[in-house]
Design a protein around this nucleic acid. Structure first.
Lengths: 112, 112
DNA sequence: CTATATCCCTAGGACTTCTAGGGAGCGGAC
DNA sequence: GTCCGCTCCCTAGAAGTCCTAGGGATATAG
């Protein structure tokens, strides 16, 4: 019963990945690094979460992959956003906005 | 593969329940109603999510229950926050704040 | 008496994430 | 030349949360 999970990513990983890919194709490792950087290290992206996420997102048609060579000259699988993925990104972004609004209403509430 | 889940609550249910109980003891049904009201119906609390959540939260010592009689004169199980639950609430509230900050950094980012 | 709202609960499954590994290649330090 | 660290990919298994889809009982209004 390990209650000690950092677990800061509450179902937001898909949106984060989609967002990372709006700037052009990127490989898994690069996505993880970018997310950590751009969140000022608030996010820690576990590879055991990332790769399964990429796999299911590709299966759903949100992203598509292609092998290439990375900046550091290694083989890397580059993912890019599809049109469906772009729509999904927008949908999830607005869903996130609704969640934040709802939470903010509740957390700022007084008794009924 | 039903992708059609409303699923607005991304792991925030515990915090929502804890928050609801900061205003005094309340029963499950009342918690659900209050959360829907105070979120302006953005949250829909399913009973199949709520009662298991209450059960595990009690098992963890965050809340304690006692049978009583509701305003509408029915038997109802009233939950109240424990000291541990109060601490947990504060911890989760600040965790939520960190998530919102991190998401906001990433969603507002430009390419690396 | 019948309908509606109020109240409680469980089982089973879908889904996401984590832990905990394994593997391989490139480049620089020594 | 060898070793180490970083880059890169991946899987299996388990834990945890939430949903769907039920089931049940009672008070009060009409």
């Amino acid at each position: 019963m390990p209650e000690s999970r950092a677990d800061l990513l509450k179902g937001t990983l898909d949106l984060l990945i989609l967002k990372a890919l709006t700037f052009g194709p990127q490989h898994g490792y690069g996505i993880a690094r970018w997310l950590e950087e751009s969140s000022q290290d608030l996010f820690q992206i576990e590879e055991g979460s990332l790769y399964p996420a990429l796999y299911r997102m590709e299966k759903r048609g949100w992203i598509r992959s292609e092998w290439g060579v990375s900046d550091s000259n290694r083989n890397a699988k580059y993912y890019r956003l599809t049109a469906v993925g772009q729509q999904e990104m927008e949908a999830q972004e607005s869903g996130w906005g609704r969640l934040v609004r709802a939470m903010s209403l509740v957390l700022g509430s007084r008794p009924s």
